[in-house]
Nucleic acid binder design. Sequence first.
DNA 1: AATGGTCAAGTCAGC
DNA 2: GCTGACTTGACCATT
Length: 297
Amino acid sequence: MKIGYPCINRTLGCVGARTFRLRNYSLDRLDEAVRNNLECLETMLRFNVEHGVLFFRITSDLVPFASHPDVEPLWVNRYADELRRIGSFIRAYDVRIDMHPGQYTLLNAKETRIVENAIRDLEYHCQILDQMGLDKTAKVQIHVGGVYEDRSASMGRFAEAFGELAAPIRRRLAIENDERSYPLADCLEISEATGCPVVFDVYHHSLLNQDEPLHEALIAAAETWEVTDGLPILDYSSSLPGGRFGRHADTLDPEDFEQFLRRTYPYDFDVMLEIKDKEISALRAVAVAQNDPRFVG
DNA sequence: AATGGTCAAGTCAGC
DNA sequence: GCTGACTTGACCATT
């Protein structure tokens, strides 16, 4: 069990997701942003390794606008050396990596233009991981998408689009249960049809479920992972006290996390903490997990 | 230097 | 049919 956090580290001074407004786009600006982002990524990875955090989500903004038609042909191959070097570091310290494209990446959209954009976006994410020389345990996790007033047809469109993806993309994908449209049971059904592993989001599951007990849900999700996919990934967070539906907590509640570790014992997985204060919570989680025989840091 | 409006993209609820 | 929430960090124009 490795513990990780997504994309950003506020303890270190660097900004790892520098971007720019598209109207201000230039090759110089792109270079400046990407070189800065890669340097910061390396700094964050070093910090993580020093602190027992061996799981990390790389931001989708690593190369801003990477799947934009004007930008895409320029960036591929442009940063290959840097990506290879960072990849070597990741492999040397056996760091688990994932990426998580945003809400606009919809494989099951009805409009072909949207699906095409989604595929280009997935190509970008996979290119980054490929150029780092990472195997398929480095996952790109996405949500199933919209319901479009017909759940089963929309799940069918996802499975169909998935089947048509190029192999280098298909092998990296994982689907995650969400909190408003597709609960775990739907993801498992899609997984059955596609072979795509399921990232189990504990918090989403608490908001949208079919009353499965935690350990049952955990086992079912874990069974969708082949050995070559790596340890199952689990997204952990809790609700913001007093916050609106679905809001993530500002910081880790160590007692809640300790209870979570107890309740999931002895099942093994890598834990991504989706919590606002990022590395602060990750370090606290690492401290809590020190006594757990599953923990690797 | 600080502030607040705005930013590629889509869906869905609410009017 | 249209508008705004969703969620959220960073950019950038304005002061």
